[in-house]
Design a binder for these strands. Structure first.
Lengths: 306, 306
DNA sequence: GCAATTGATGCTCATTGCGCATCAATTCTG
DNA sequence: CAGAATTGATGCGCAATGAGCATCAATTGC
């Protein structure tokens, strides 16, 4: 039969050894001295050997006790530092939230919310897998992450989506580009210029091509790159213009680049949270998601970035 | 207030996860199913979060549960292998030593020392993770093992190395190969023959190429394989010759294969013990390491296998 | 020698954990 | 698709356990 005792027994033993007093240890453990005395005695009975040598005025560990102290200390450190202590999450305990996020969203979506979250829960760590849309969905489906921030659209019976925000596709151009002079442009206005796009099978490209096809619009792509950020690099270099999700464009004033809304039609992608149906989240992830939905979910209603 | 639960709670949780059934787990734990159900529920209440997702026909760990399984497993293994279980061992103290070891060293390094150690401490068990060099170092760094036996070289501020032995690279050839006739060979002698090597990014290959480059020697690799043992297989099949750490070659007489030292220059790898700085070892690991260093550490001075 | 202090014990009582019986939900089979 | 089988959860009664209070015996300091 395997040995059974309580974690409090281990704490009691360690506390008596460290404080060299049942009275002081009982105080530290918030139990009475007789209760502590009995607890240690029971532990020794279960183990079948004494752990402490004691008179009415002196207590110290036996040879066995000495040998067990490092193990007990290590076990308690591991236990207390682990997610078994998530209940105390609001005070000092740690945790880890693992999420998959579109690269474009990782930069512009998460920092504000994570900063706000870590102000409240300073010891929650984050592992952010910044993955393209398809791989991000797969990571969620496989349970590699607790949830993902992704483009809404693909229907999968095992995945549940909650919308966060609408992210329109906008024109990115150099400030000295003719189109930069206009407050907004139409798709037809783009026709005369070199377009820089992302690779054909990316989710963004698929969504965009599909939406344009519905309006009988076909754009002339001239450069194809792998990452949206590379698109911006080429635009800045003067090679052409690009159509990008607004989220992927520089926020605020840029020395060389501007963005312009594109109308007729206005096309946008819906960004949301994707989770496996029925799967529960860790307490830390649950709280973070709550904050994320609270922050960005409001923006979904207003149609603006928070 | 610190979390308190019983060791049996942890066993219960782990058992349910591993057996995916409350009924089977209750059986294994020698308690009734309702008792187990309540025990898990109480544990979840104490922790403040669910550990298991369950219907009447299915049970699996939550995200939090998944994260806790390795910790619980480790804690229970440590606890059960420790002197807390002296009652069950009866006479001699038990324990568990977990180490990471290069596959080549696992076979030829450990058996003699473990045999000697278990003669003295018959109830210390061993878990040996035989991992390639890089993964072995990572296992040590992550605290998955108490120490590792690895190639010395990479400097990591969090890891401490103690040298054990020098392991020279030797030629492995079939007995009927022309080079087998010589008592020793030089690197230049290998040039006319097909060489079988391991994959480029392996630690052994990196070390060897680097050392040869210093002497302006570049070998013509003809076959590239993943494992050292496959090298020997191809040599035996007559496809060519190979350069291997002596430790990876057959000890004693082999029906078809011989090894020959390679001079000019003689190249060797330094095998040593790697530990996390500042981390304490369990008593059993401490004693084993002492014996290991005593046995093989002497060999490091003499430059021969013990 | 006496007082102060400590760990252990007797006692009472509230709390806990057990197994049995049973329920509701889920899944399988005919 | 209905019924049977199986599983995890719950109600219940009861034995076991762990708590604090009061007190004891032993030890040490003044």
């Amino acid at each position: 039969m395997s040995i059974n005792c309580e974690i409090l027994d281990l704490r009691a033993f360690l506390s008596v050894v460290e404080l060299a007093s049942f009275h002081r240890a009982a105080e530290a453990l918030h139990i009475s001295q007789p209760a502590l005395s009995r607890r240690i005695q029971k532990l020794e009975t279960v183990i079948g050997a004494p752990l402490l040598e004691r008179t009415t005025r002196h207590v110290s560990p036996t040879a066995l006790g000495v040998e067990l102290v490092p193990l007990v200390r290590r076990m308690l450190e591991e236990f207390d530092g682990s997610l078994f202590s998530v209940r105390e999450i609001g005070v000092n305990r740690g945790g880890l939230v693992t999420i998959a996020c579109l690269p474009t969203a990782a930069f512009y979506f998460l920092p504000t919310v994570i900063r706000q979250f870590n102000a409240e829960y300073p010891n929650i760590r984050f592992r952010i897998l910044d993955l393209p849309a398809t791989e991000g969905l797969q990571a969620v489906a496989r349970g590699e992450v607790e949830f993902g921030i992704n483009i809404m659209g693909t229907s999968d019976p095992d995945l549940a989506f909650d919308r966060l925000v609408e992210d329109p596709f906008v024109l990115a151009a150099r400030k000295d580009h003719p189109l930069a002079a206009r407050p907004e442009v139409r798709w037809a206005d783009l026709a005369p210029y070199h377009l820089i796009t992302v690779y054909r099978s990316s989710a963004n490209r698929t969504l965009l091509d599909s939406a344009l096809a519905k309006s009988n619009i076909k754009l002339r792509w001239f450069y194809e790159v792998t990452h949206l950020s590379t698109s911006l690099g080429l635009v800045e270099a003067g090679l052409g213009i690009s159509v990008l999700p607004q989220m992927a464009t520089p926020q605020g004033e840029h020395p060389f680049l501007v963005t312009r809304p594109i109308r007729n039609p206005e096309i946008s992608r819906t960004i949301g949270v994707v989770r496996r149906r029925g799967a529960s989240l860790s307490p830390a992830a649950e709280r973070f998601l709550h904050m994320l939905m609270g922050t960005w979910g409001k923006a979904a209603l207003a149609g603006i970035k928070a």
